[in-house]
Computed example of a mutant assay.
Amino acid sequence: MNWKQIAAATGEPFPGFIWAYRFRGDGIAERLNPEAIESVLQAGDGWVWLHLNLANVRALDWLQSAAPIPDEARTLFLQVDEHQTLQVTDDGVIFGIFSDLKQEFNEKSTEDIAKLRFCVTENFMVSARRAPLKAVEETRRLIEDGRRFPSAVTLLEAIVLRFCDGVAKVARGLSTSLDRIEDRVVLADEGDERVAIGPLRRTALRIHRQLQHLAILFHDFAEENDTALPEDTRLAAARIERRLSALDNDMRDIHERARVVSDEVASKLAQQANRNLSVLSLLTALFVPPTLMTGVWGMNITNLPFKDADNGLWAVLGICLTSTVLVFAVWKFLTRR
């Protein structure tokens, strides 16, 4: 089934279409209508970037039956697994899955991670996602502003670097939040910082895992010797790997700082709990002798001391007070040692 047959069956010019651009030899792009994609690809004038929405089931039909990509890449687009990967075929076709920050409809990015699937051939790049992605959208805006992309590899590099910029912004936000938490902890603020430090640590750890894996993928890709990758592609992979590794180090430092602050908060809470327990234990000890004595004198039996004395009540109260003072003196003596 070709593109036109799928379009006729689905009732859409191109199923799951988000946007498409044709890049001339000088890297200048022009936006394509869905109807023109097939003819441009057949003409072989420049290269085409097609971006699809995988939430549209009919886009999966096109990827499965009509997309001009290798079978390995086709399987990657259709599978449910979203682990990051970067592979290259013997023919030099690059495909994989990258992480990106989600973007809400109000054009604000979040700290949530989503995945971008892509395949790059000699004159064609297809990418697809299930949720709006920040780096992809920012790269599209660069194209609209006139940025030149002479090859699909340069476009792919731009997307990954925009992702790095987004992560760097998240890292700055996490670091600023962590600074405020540290200040409150040092100033012995009574607020419980566990509520704030927990989500911060989870975010730092989640992004660290994505960065670490992606940096390893690009390192291995740059060192790939089994395929004849162009030198500019290897250099681009090396640049990306260095940027990802630097960001990963920053995120790891943030996570380590958050762990130290979390331990400090836990220590302060433990100290506060120990103080409260100490006070409670002291009060319990102080009231034990008076409670014992009032229990004894409260028994309805004969031969109790001071039972018939005129000042018996005051005598018993004096004994209770004296015993309490003695217990307190013993406690002070023991705590000074």
Rank of each mutant, 00 (worst) to 15 (best):
S177R: 14
P70E: 06
A236N: 12
L229A: 03
R209H: 10
N56K: 02
L116G: 06
R22F: 03
N249G: 08
L32C: 01
E12Q: 14
S151D: 14
F95N: 07
I143N: 12
D183R: 15
Q271R: 12
A215I: 02
T324S: 13
E241R: 00
D253R: 14
D220A: 06
V80W: 00
T324V: 05
D61C: 11
L155G: 03
I254G: 00
R275K: 12
D61T: 13
E224M: 14
E193R: 08
K134S: 15
V316M: 12
W49F: 02
R252M: 08
D310T: 12
E72N: 09
N303R: 07
D308W: 01
M293F: 13
S281P: 09
E30L: 05
S281N: 14
A309N: 13
A55P: 01
V48R: 00
R194K: 12
L174N: 14
L200P: 03
L205M: 08
K268H: 12
D310K: 10
V185W: 10
L326V: 11
E138I: 09
L280M: 14
Q64W: 09
G295K: 10
T110V: 07
I240M: 04
V153Q: 11
I113M: 15
I37S: 00
L280R: 10
V260N: 03
Q272M: 12
E157T: 09
G295Y: 08
T85S: 13
P289Y: 05
K169M: 05
L244V: 06
D71A: 13
L321F: 13
A270D: 12
P13V: 00
G166M: 04
Q210G: 00
F23H: 02
S267K: 10
A246N: 04
F333K: 00
